[in-house]
Amino acid sequence: MNLKPATLQSIDEVITHYPVKRSATLPLLHLIQEDIGYLPPDTCEWVAAKLELQPINVLEVVTFYPMFRQKPIGRRHIKVCRTLSCALMGGYKTCEQFEKEFNTHRGEVSPDGEVTVDFVECLASCGTAPVVLIDDDLHEKVDCAKAKQLSDQIKAEAKKR
């Protein structure tokens, strides 16, 4: 596991937050994923060794929580809310718009490697539906036009690189 020194430091710090090391499982997985972009194959063994657990204990957790991913994704992660309030306001169309913009399908990395579009369950911003979480940022009232506008921004940023 090739983690940045700052990540390793955060890992050691967060373990001190709990009287029982196992509690740090989710925080460690978040930190590793933030550092590497996903959870590489040796994650479970590494976390287990760090927290004095068995690897299966960590694998059970990794696969339970949808936010943890065991495969790399596109440079940007577009999560469109699928649940009722957003769907009532056109969430499915929003998702399709993103898929079209990046010539991709839900759950896949776009051919240019730029994004992964996913449907996710309720993001708890139902009053501003449909909502989309792009990486850490929440975007509200994302109709098709706004989805196109956000896509254009991402594409423009990609061109600059």
């Binding site: 068995q54 299966i56 204990n57 694998l59 059970e60 696969t63 339970f64 949808p66």
Partner: peptide, 9 residues
């Protein structure tokens, strides 16, 4: 011998 578990949900 804690080797068994459930994956997915």
């Amino acid at each position: 011998d804690d080797v068994l578990g459930f994956v997915d949900r």
